[in-house]
Design a protein around this nucleic acid. Structure first.
Length: 885
RNA sequence: GCGGACGUGGCGAAACCGGUAGACGCAGCAGACUUAAAAUCUGCUUCCUUAAAAGGGAGUGUGGGUUCGAGUCCCGCCGUCCGCACCA
């Protein structure tokens, strides 16, 4: 008998080894295409191989694993793959710090993290594993890029980057700290360089509209994406240049369209324009700066600092007049042109019209610089007559036009149409749709990424690498030192022959944004061994991903790029689907306490929570801590995302070694629902471990007396029927919580309740009570099956211990028995005026009359209705009666 | 600044469709077992009032509103977190 093999003590390490050996021996998680079975593709966002798993990974992959194992027990043909998002900046940083080539560092990390993932017992089909730095994968990035380039989806234009003038290198936003280079401390400049872009804006309309057809996505993510894409309808209009501006541009032989283009959603305020503002990167700004040293200095100052939009938007708004003018498109009045640091070159035309009376930002700008404020819209509700000295929200609202020539008296809405029509007649404007979304710049001046497959030939210009010469392999032995891209100094990489004319030529040294790598890896998992094309028919079987799981921080960029890239591949005839992810779960962050010391000078020093002893005030609130190393006080900085920079990470490895993978998994799933942030707690981890020991002990005690007799439902006592009801109720709850709600924490709580009920039930059972043993066997089986997706190792052992020859992984998920669930009597609560005043027990499905009569007869209730007239009685069947007096 | 979310006991949370606020767990307290400790088991544990119990009252960041009834819906405010295009 299996129970003889069971030892009394729960030994997590031995249990986990046994289960993992079994799965490996039976190749349990190999996914095979089978047209006769309904597939289920469960995917967690692949990790960046940073060195070791962090808690966020454990959480992400446990959620995915629970869903995958649950769906498998539901009978679906499940694919759960894993790979590595292996290109990126940290590998270069490690190279700079340690002199190790990024390739070697990355592959070592992958080897270590793969062992960690295996130790956690995830049901992954490892045969499909790949890393994005494998040439077998990134060759298809290159191939797809070339197809997009042929179709004009990929095109070249200039873009703005952070330039470190000391290291003479382009920096990522992350490498710019307070406007200075992270290594050199030099003030960063914005610099324009040629780059490749992907025309995601051509898909903007479709990407926006299709959000409505993604019911399996969280509302908040769909809203964020819609706002990010940002469709706005408005008017594009031209302010013709005045003579002064024309003369200047002519002298510089500069571009001459003869007019400054702007886009506005508020064309109704056109007569209130008292200035136009252009970005410091606008060509007109450099032209004006060339003849005005003060303006040149201002433009220069605008060029310093970060390119990040958040920084730009939060910065103090500055501006300076150029002395140049444009003409109002309808009145012909001269309008002064200003340079302003809050105007973004990347959005719209890099120029905006300034209407101080009806736009808050323009209002502030005009007040600071003494620019006139012209009221041209009066609120329809009469909230104001004329714009005053203090900004009020009503100023920006729609209304009726005043002092606007022939348009005076029109409503804002009608005025926009009329003014657009008037502009169109003059050839100075038209209605159009503007997107907030910008095309996706994919060129990176970095080594550790996928080479862009282009060759520069003096004779032939820019030539694509022919397909039969792909992949353009990235040399893996270079070590970046922080001063520019080492590819540019690698003779072996750079020198090549022009594919067209055969003359010596130079290879492109820019690599692709790593978001390219992650924009289609989910397709490649379907057919990772395919060497003739990026995808094949197996992708038709597995895609779309049925459940995608990843951090909320990816809610916009990665998910939007993947949606776009999938459509681009569709338009290249490679796949038929448009949306890659049918259902999305965005997990919350993993948080821990932050402790630090703030020296008088220099940066904060963060201490790991494991190195401090927290201190609490009288109310039990955490106020500070003492270092365990030097016994000196430490500041408490609240809760923060686990991160290297705050030194508040907890190593999953230690956790797994001390308590086992099942405890780690259980804690992660129990501490919070998956979409919420999760707080680390050492004590709670111990609590989860305790629960597993209790579960183990309960099964051990049960099986110690030998096999359980068969269940005879007809002969059960009321206590036994009650335990059956609790078991099947728990099963129904777990099923709904995992399948529909994805609230694993409440699913676990339901099984905990069941186990508590088994314990209480046990206390009143006589030895040798056959029915009691049969009912308890059923309850424990339900507990083990229900927990098996979450803590699969211990359940593997317990299932055998309960007398089953097969593996729990191959069991079907049971259906709750509706007969076991039914109850003869139910409790109704009785409220008086909405306040709880009593309870009554009634047969299930009692009528309204029965319920109200019982409520009125209840003594506890009568005290509150005595002497009063019961006016109305609300009855919710089997739930409550509310008496209104 | 813009966009999105969240706010419930000492703590993590639960309350799924507007119907018993605090399930489940952590920490704490008391007891059992033990020479002792650990482990384990049992019980208690939102606050106020009361010696205690019974009973009553208050209570889901905050101020209003809708409703027979609001943690849940609506409006305002305060606070915290995430994203903002070269971190992944």
């Amino acid at each position: 008998m299996y129970s003889c093999l069971m030892q009394e003590r729960y030994d997590a390490a031995a249990v986990e080894r046994a289960a993992q050996d079994y799965w490996e021996r039976h190749d349990s998680f190999a996914a095979r295409e089978d047209a006769g079975r309904e597939k289920y593709y469960c995917l967690s966002m692949f990790p960046y191989p940073s060195g070791r798993l962090h808690m966020g990974h454990v959480r992400n992959y446990t959620i995915g694993d629970v869903v995958a194992r649950f769906m498998r027990m539901q009978g679906r043909n499940v694919l759960q793959p894993m790979g590595w998002d292996a290109f990126g900046l940290p590998a270069e940083n490690a190279a700079i710090a340690n002199g190790v080539p990024p390739a070697a560092w990355t592959r070592d990390n992958i080897a270590y993290m793969r062992r960690q993932l295996r130790a956690l017992g995830f049901a992954i089909d490892w045969r499909r594993e790949f890393a994005t730095c494998d040439a077998d994968y990134y060759r298809w990035n290159q191939w797809l890029f070339l197809r997009m380039r042929e179709r004009g989806i990929a095109y070249k234009k200039t873009g703005v980057v952070n330039w470190d003038p000391v290291d003479r290198t382009v920096l990522a936003n992350e490498q710019v700290i307070d406007g200075r280079g992270w290594r050199t401390g030099a003030l960063i400049e914005k610099r324009e360089i040629p780059m490749y872009y992907l025309r995601i804006t051509a898909y903007a309309e479709e990407l926006l509209a299709a959000l409505d057809e993604l019911p399996g996505w969280p509302e908040r993510v769909r809203v964020m994406q819609a706002n990010w894409i940002g469709r706005s309808e408005g008017v594009e209009l031209s302010f013709p240049y005045e003579a002064d501006t024309r003369a200047l541009l002519a002298a510089r032989a500069a571009d001459e369209q003869g007019a400054l283009k702007v886009f506005t959603t508020r064309a109704d305020t056109l007569f209130g324009v008292t200035f136009v503002a252009i970005s410091a990167e606008h060509p007109l700004a450099s032209a004006a700066a060339a003849r005005d040293p003060r303006l040149a200095a201002f433009v220069d100052a605008c060029r310093r600092g970060s390119t990040m939009e958040a920084d730009v938007a939060a910065a103090q708004k500055h501006g300076m007049a150029t002395g140049l003018h444009a003409r109002h498109p309808l009145t012909g009045a001269p309008i002064e042109i200003w340079v302003a640091n809050y105007v973004l070159m990347a959005y719209g035309e890099g120029a905006v019209m300034g209407v101080p009376a009806h736009d808050e930002r323009d209002f502030e700008f005009a007040q600071r610089h003494g620019i006139a404020i012209r009221t041209v819209v009066k609120s329809a509700g009469g909230a104001y007559e004329r714009v005053g000295d203090q900004w009020q929200r009503e100023y920006a609202e729609d209304g009726v036009l005043v002092e606007s020539g022939e348009f005076t008296g029109l409503s804002s809405r009608a005025a926009i149409d009329a003014i657009a029509a008037a502009l169109q007649r003059r050839g100075l404007g038209c209605k159009r749709v503007q997107w907030r979304l910008r095309d996706w710049g994919i060129s990176r001046q970095r080594y550790w990424g996928c080479p862009i497959p282009l060759i520069h030939c003096e004779q032939c210009g820019e030539v694509p690498v022919p397909d039969d010469q792909l992949p353009v392999r990235l040399p893996e032995d270079l070590v970046p030192d922080g001063s520019g891209n080492p590819l540019a100094r690698s003779a072996g990489f750079i020198h090549c022959q022009c594919p067209t004319c055969g003359r010596p030529a130079r290879r492109e040294t820019d690599t692709m944004d790593t978001f390219v790598d992650s924009s289609w890896y989910f397709l490649r998992f379907a057919c990772a061994d395919q060497s003739h094309s990026p995808v094949d028919e197996r992708a038709h079987y597995w895609l779309p991903v049925d459940q995608y799981i990843g951090g909320i921080e990816h809610a916009i960029l990665h998910l939007l790029y993947s949606r776009f890239w999938t459509r681009a591949m569709r338009d290249l005839g490679l796949v038929t689907l448009s949306e890659p992810f049918a259902n999305l779960l965005t997990q919350g962050m993993v948080l821990n306490h932050v402790y630090y010391r703030a020296p008088a000078e220099g940066r904060r020093q963060y201490l790991n929570p494991a190195e401090v002893e927290p201190q609490f005030d009288a109310a039990g609130v955490r106020v500070g801590a003492v270092s365990l190393i030097d016994r000196q006080p430490v500041e408490y900085g609240g809760l923060g995302t686990m991160s290297k920079s705050k030194n508040n990470g907890v190593d999953p490895q230690t956790l797994v070694e001390r308590y086992g993978a099942d405890t780690a998994r259980l804690f992660m799933m129990f501490a919070a629902p998956p979409e919420q942030s999760l707080e680390w707690s050492d004590e709670a981890v111990q609590g989860q471990h305790r629960f597993l020991r209790r579960l183990w002990k309960a099964v051990f005690d049960h099986v110690a007396a030998g096999p359980a007799p068969p269940l005879d439902v007809a002969s059960l006592s009321s206590r036994e029927r009650e335990l059956r009801r609790q078991a099947h109720q728990a099963l129904a709850k777990v099923t709904a919580d995992i399948a529909r709600r994805r609230t694993f924490n409440t699913a676990i709580a339901a099984v905990m309740e069941l186990l508590n009920a088994v314990g209480h039930f046990q206390a009143g059972v006589q030895d040798g009570d056959v029915n009691a043993r049969a009912v308890r066997q059923e309850a424990l089986q339900i507990a083990v099956l229900a927990l098996s997706p979450i803590v699969p190792h211990i359940c593997h052992s317990l299932w055998h211990a309960l007398g089953h020859g097969g593996a729990v992984i191959d069991e079907r998920w049971p259906e709750p028995d509706s007969a076991a669930l039914s109850q003869a009597m139910v409790e109704l609560i009785v409220q008086v005026n909405g306040k709880l005043r009593g309870r009554v027990r009634l047969p299930a499905n009692a009528t309204r009359q029965q319920a109200v009569d019982a409520a009125l007869a209840e003594p506890a209730v009568q005290r509150f209705i005595a002497g009063k007239q019961v006016g109305k009685a609300i009855h919710v069947p089997d739930k409550l009666v509310n008496l209104v007096v």
